[in-house]
């Protein structure tokens, strides 16, 4: 498959981000050009503080770049108003966080159902969808548990189910295994890969977890807010041993 035959879901052009605190200006992103294909599992690798989360916020429409453009499905994000951004976040993008970010007052099912409420789905439909997704992530028996009653791995499964609630075309996962032990981390990675394969959803995952390397289609190495190199999976396997972080 050559590049021009494939569709892009995300394209960034010269994205920079500066944080001004007092007199100091911190250049968190220094011009990122990246094309992400539909259905791809892409990992963004880099040490802590390299700008992964910042880049994510730009792609996810959670923050605005200082300069440069982010296109989602060929739409320039800068031109969307607040309501259109909310629509995009609700239906086009699913978010997964390192610290799960489940709403503590809601049960697993209510957490998964919440995005369907925002998308205007009927209550019954939303609940049906929520149960289906929780079954899919292996939590069919924990529907009415609150986050505090679930383990870290289980919470992240709920978060994955929630991110899929409105059948988004992109899932943004920011260090999804960061708070998990080796075994659960692997399970979550496997689950993400399964979703990627089965639903065809594009997964963009920021991580410095080397377990991600095996299952990613491509790996983008970021250092100090700039893309260092982009590698296909074929080339990675040999280089794993050399990785430093």
């Amino acid at each position: 498959m050559s590049d021009n035959q494939r569709d892009y879901v995300v394209r960034t052009r010269g994205v920079t981000k500066e944080f001004v605190t007092g007199d100091t200006v911190l250049q968190a992103l220094k011009g990122i050009d990246l094309d992400i294909y539909a259905g791809e599992y892409i990992s963004i690798m880099g040490p802590s503080g390299s700008g992964k989360s910042t880049f994510f916020n730009m792609v996810g429409g959670l923050d605005k770049p200082t300069s440069g453009t982010v296109f989602i499905n060929d739409v320039d994000m800068a031109q969307l108003d607040a309501q259109e951004l909310a629509y995009l976040r609700c239906r086009t993008i699913g978010y997964i966080f390192q610290s799960f970010n489940l709403l503590p007052v809601m049960t697993a099912l209510e957490n998964v159902t919440l995005p369907t409420i925002f998308s205007g789905m009927s209550r019954d439909e939303g609940i049906e969808r929520g149960i289906e997704l929780l079954n899919k992530v292996g939590l069919g028996h924990r529907l009415h548990h609150r986050p505090t009653e679930l383990s870290g791995g289980q919470q992240q499964r709920v978060a994955i189910a929630r991110s899929l609630a409105n059948s988004p075309s992109i899932i943004l996962a920011d260090e999804p295994t960061g708070n998990l032990d080796l075994k659960t981390g692997t399970e979550i990675i496997d689950l993400l890969k399964t979703m990627n394969k089965e639903q065809g959803v594009t997964i963009i995952s920021a991580t410095h977890d080397l377990k991600m390397l095996n299952i990613s289609d491509r790996i983008v190495w970021i250092r100090d807010g700039a893309v260092e190199k982009i590698e296909d999976r074929a080339n990675i396997e040999i280089k794993v041993g050399e990785m430093d972080h």
Binding site: A82, A86, R89, C90, Y95, N101, P115, F118, S119, N166
Partner: peptide, 8 residues
């Protein structure tokens, strides 16, 4: 989080 899920 709610904003990420589409809340206005």
């Amino acid at each position: 989080t709610m904003k990420c899920l589409g809340a206005l």
